[in-house]
């Protein structure tokens, strides 16, 4: 009998305790952040959309290798010494590789940050930019290369020409040497 009334009493009082607690929160400051109007400031190391700094990239492919989901595609070609257009890196050193293709598919990216830590020149970096949703999945394929496909073809052709020239020269020189040796 005593237990019965004790149960009723505790049920009643604990409910009142709870109501006191909830009512004490009514006038507390709200924690809501009204997103598009106010935004949280992200820390500078936040891992959001990737950004490639082309002046640092030397198409070494380490980011593509490090990526666990294969969302980065890198293609490069050596800069031909004959190329009329010569480029320099951010630190003034001459560019050795043209980046003919650098694509990141953000639909695949898992924002793990491994490419960032693998990059030897700090070219690829996560930014704090996170509002880049698209209705079309294909629009999430970002192309970071500065060269147009035609230009890339041109660079490849130049390199191939240069290589061929080198080979010819080499062949002729070795042939010359062989000739000398024969004599």
């Amino acid at each position: 009998m005593f237990e019965y009334f004790k149960n009723i009493w505790s049920g009643f009082t604990t409910a009142l305790h709870g109501m006191a607690i909830t009512s004490s929160h009514i006038f507390a400051k709200s924690v809501t952040i009204q997103y598009p109007d106010e935004k949280l400031t992200l820390p500078s190391n936040a891992r959001n959309r990737l950004q490639l700094e082309m002046s640092r990239c030397n198409a070494c492919n380490s980011c593509a290798v490090a990526c666990p989901v294969n969302c980065i595609t890198v293609e490069g070609t050596r800069v031909s010494p004959d190329d009329p257009q010569q480029d320099v890196h951010w630190d003034g050193k001459p560019r050795k590789m043209w980046v003919t293709r650098y694509e990141i598919d953000f639909a695949k990216c898992c924002f793990c940050g491994l490419c960032q830590s693998a990059c030897p020149t700090d070219a690829i970096k996560h930014t704090v930019e996170y509002e880049y949703s698209e209705y079309d999945r294909n629009k999430l394929l970002y192309k970071f290369q500065t060269l147009s496909p035609a230009e890339a073809e041109e660079k490849k052709r130049l390199l191939a020409e240069f290589r061929a020239k080198e080979k010819e020269k080499e062949c002729s020189s070795t042939a010359g040497k062989a000739h000398e040796a024969k004599e």
């Binding site: 820390p43 190391n45 936040a46 891992r47 924002f111 793990c112």
Partner: peptide, 12 residues
């Protein structure tokens, strides 16, 4: 954890 690692849920 976000300030430490850069991500809010999947830290790596």
């Amino acid at each position: 954890l976000e300030r430490l690692s850069g991500a809010r849920l999947l830290y790596n």
